[in-house]
């Protein structure tokens, strides 16, 4: 009898959860952590947004993927657009207050807008960030946020979205309405978002339209996606075979479950 020694089968690749956790624990942006330690003042440009620092704390943030403080303040009539432009031109926080906005309302709007833009600015990026030392932003005294607090909140926000619906496809793509057979009732605030879905608008466009923070819109859209009411616009696929299965609601549901499991 001959015994054939076959080599042991190759080990299957396993996702290493222990090191993945360490990576997350290492901070959202090592550069930002370093700038906080040296109490830097200036502007950090990243791929999806900009953070303004004063003495190592984040005092303002902007991102093309989130409505700015001006849009949030003027969208609901809290402040006239001209009043904002005047205050911004003169870089004078006091002017905003003289135009009837209360310090409490300004602070809340700034906290909201800062965290909203920072969520996108601190998203994983493919290009390195760049820091320019300089003077503090004109709204630096409204509500400075320590870097560690901001990073903790960003990680909490990422986890919140993952918990609602793990597929991030609705965050950036143009959106279409999907009409499931038994559509669940939609809460008022989500219904306002759903109404804006027209096959062209992305999450950020909907946020601008409604004058709401972009992250809040992502939350609503993920809930709508998990209810099967919203889907990302599929890229145009020429010569695709006719897909009869898509018409069957059960097949469509199974596909969504499969997509969600794959995204886990």
């Amino acid at each position: 009898m001959t015994v054939v020694d076959s080599p042991p089968p190759p080990r299957l690749p396993v996702r290493d959860r222990a090191t993945a956790h360490q990576r997350v624990g290492g901070g959202v942006s090592p550069m930002l952590t370093r700038l906080a330690e040296e109490r830097a003042t200036g502007v950090l440009d990243r791929e999806h947004g900009t953070l303004h620092l004063a003495e190592g704390r984040v005092v303002h943030a902007e991102s093309p993927l989130a409505p700015g403080l001006a849009e949030l303040l003027t969208a609901h009539g809290t402040l006239a657009a001209e009043a904002w432009l005047e205050a911004e031109d003169s870089a004078d926080e006091g002017r905003l207050l003289r135009y009837g906005i209360t310090p409490g309302a300004l602070e809340l709007a700034q906290v909201g807008a800062l965290h909203d833009a920072a969520y996108f600015a601190l998203a994983p990026s493919s290009t390195p960030g760049r820091f320019r030392y300089g003077s503090a932003h004109w709204l630096a005294s409204v509500h400075p946020v320590p870097v560690a607090v901001l990073e903790r909140e960003m990680l909490r926000r990422r986890a919140l979205l993952r918990r609602i619906w793990p597929d991030p496809a609705t965050d950036r793509a143009p959106l279409i309405r999907a009409d499931p057979v038994a559509a669940p009732t939609v809460p008022t605030r989500q219904a306002a978002v759903l109404e804006q879905v027209d096959g062209v608008r992305r999450a950020v466009d909907i946020a601008r339209e409604l004058g709401r923070p972009a992250f809040h819109t992502l939350v609503h859209l993920r809930r709508l996606a998990s209810a099967g009411l919203v889907a990302p616009q599929p890229p145009p696929a020429p010569d695709a075979p006719p897909d009869d299965a898509a018409a069957d609601p059960y097949v469509a549901l199974l596909k969504r479950v499969r997509d969600a499991l794959e995204a886990l």
């Binding site: 809290t78 309302a105 409604l210 709401r212 923070p213």
Partner: peptide, 8 residues
């Protein structure tokens, strides 16, 4: 319910 449209 604030004017900002954010529920707090």
């Amino acid at each position: 319910t604030g004017r900002g449209g954010n529920g707090l």
